[in-house]
Amino acid sequence: MAELMARLDLNAYEAPRTTGAHAHEEGQLFALRAGLQLIETSAGRWVLPPGWIGWIAPRCAHAAQSHGATAGWSLYLDPALTTALPAQPHVFASTPLIRELVGRLVSLGEEGEAARRLRLVGVLVDELVAGTRTSLHLALPQERRLLALATALADDPARDDTLEQWADRIGMARRTLTRRFAAETGLSFAQWRQQARLLKAVQLLGMGEPVTAVALTVGYSSVSAFIETFRRHFGCTPSRFFAQGADTSR
């Protein structure tokens, strides 16, 4: 029987990096203790703030873009070890146990006992799958005109164009836009716009921008309205949200 592979790499880059569409034969778990990363596939975008744990399935084509200097780790897993993990990219919240497991894997190094490494990986995967699901994903529609709309709004979510204005701009009836957008993203247009604003907010907050500036940048008229919307969506305030993922990388 072929030996299962689980390889952990530590990495640090002083400058932002952009990686075009590519895929790995292995699955990849990864986290940053500094910097922020955006992952994109044909199905959507994911934001990886510092301290949270990203996942990319084997042979999943994706592009990546980092912001600022980054440092963290990547754990490459044999496909046989990843069957319980999602088929699409995902971002997991960390826990004290998950942080301890990652620390043990780092301390083992490349010379550590392979069987022990695999046991630790098994527990790590179990903990990730059993953990709280957090929506750090923005679904993208596939239809050409809807994708153009979604891309423009995701890049600048403070735009306050109405649904009617967007329908006129892309040459689609309002009712058709409403129906097809929901069918392709799983969200109503209003829900999707809010998700786009919150994901952009997480990106900016993760880059160190102050809450007041972020609230205005993503289209909220007041800081209190932004914090309340953030709390309803993620279950905590922005400061608590980032504390949840603290110290994932060692």
Rank of each mutant, 00 (worst) to 15 (best):
M1F: 09
A2F: 00
E3M: 13
L4G: 06
L4C: 09
L4M: 09
D9P: 14
L10A: 14
L10F: 13
A12I: 09
A15I: 04
T19S: 13
H22E: 05
A23E: 13
H24T: 04
F30L: 04
G35K: 12
G35A: 07
L36G: 13
Q37C: 06
I39H: 01
E40F: 13
T41A: 14
G44S: 02
W52I: 07
R59H: 08
A71W: 03
L75P: 14
L77N: 09
A87Q: 14
V91A: 09
A93Q: 06
A93T: 09
L97A: 08
I98F: 10
E100M: 07
R104P: 07
G112C: 01
G112H: 04
R116K: 08
R119Y: 10
V121K: 15
L124R: 02
L124E: 05
L128M: 04
G131Y: 06
T134R: 11
T134S: 04
E143V: 07
L149D: 07
A152L: 11
L153K: 09
P157C: 03
A158Q: 01
R159Y: 10
D161F: 08
D161N: 05
R169I: 15
M172E: 08
M172S: 02
A173T: 01
R175E: 12
L177D: 05
L187G: 04
F189H: 02
A190S: 08
A190V: 10
A196E: 11
A201R: 14
A201K: 11
T217I: 09
V218N: 01
G219Q: 03
S221I: 09
S222E: 05
A225M: 06
F226I: 15
F234V: 14
G235T: 09
G235W: 01
G235M: 08
C236Y: 05
P238Y: 11
P238H: 11
F241N: 05
Q244D: 08
Q244L: 13
T248C: 00
